[in-house]
Amino acid sequence: MKVKRSVSFYVYQVFNTVVLALVALSCILPILHVFAMSLSSSNAAMAGRVGFVPVEFTFTAYEYLISKKDFFHSVSISLWRVLAGTVLNMVIIAITAYPLSRPTQQFRARTAYMVYFAITMFIGGGLIPTYMVIKNLHLLDSFWVLILPSAMSIWNVIIMMNFIKGLPRAIEEAAFVDGANHWQTLTRVILPMSKPSLASLLLFSMIGHWNAWFDGMFYMNNPNNYPMATYLATQVINNNQSMTNMTPEQLALLSSLSEKTVRSAQMFIAIIPILVVYPFLQKFFVKGITVGSVKE
């Protein structure tokens, strides 16, 4: 009995490992491809001769990037955006999810608030009206336009709220018994217990801010204010207009369609910060929290 079980366990572990390794492989190959591309000669890249190892190894693409000031300027804007935006997102998520996680009998207005927020998940005003609102608030071309409109994300709040609901009530009740108010309960009891959820929301918020490009493009009047994702989006030229009447201008554009190596280098640089931050946050998901250790 005992032996049998450990054999099946062993088989299962091997199977598990192999499947997960294959899945992981399917995910890592693209980035290897991009990385190899960024270090290959542009002709090799265009001729499709690059697989997962650089062909005709060269740093040209990176040298070209380093010579461009606007790229690094846009990276710095993105870093500030991630920092400020994420802090604001997290504060709002915490102070919004907590009241909404209270039972209705304890907080009667909860339902009204929830309806008020939930409606916005399905109905939006559209691009032009939003633009007019932002213009009238004098937010166009300002750093804050990257942060304020996305400050409140009802999706993330709902995820956090459900997480809090799942926490054992005994602990917070104990806090109340000890005389804590709501603010104290939130900061001293709920938040420390919500680390896995906070860490994942933090990660999503960071990635969201890091990758968001459309708002930068649409609300900034000057490319100098573009965050990195917007800057990169302007670099990927996809010319889908009809070329029946080619002007010299469009001709010149054509040759820029094939800077595959430079774009690969940009993409790779763009991913680095996330790859660096991610393992640190990951610690929180893996370790989880020691809810079971609460002893009364």
């Binding site: 102070i95 608030y113 927020f117 005003g125 009206p129 007019m132 304020l148 409109p149 400050a151 409140m152």
Partner: peptide, 20 residues
Amino acid sequence: MLLPAVIFTAIFAYLPMFGL
């Protein structure tokens, strides 16, 4: 606690709905 979220939602989600 809910006030900031209510304000943000009012400005950036409800106000543009006039565009509907």
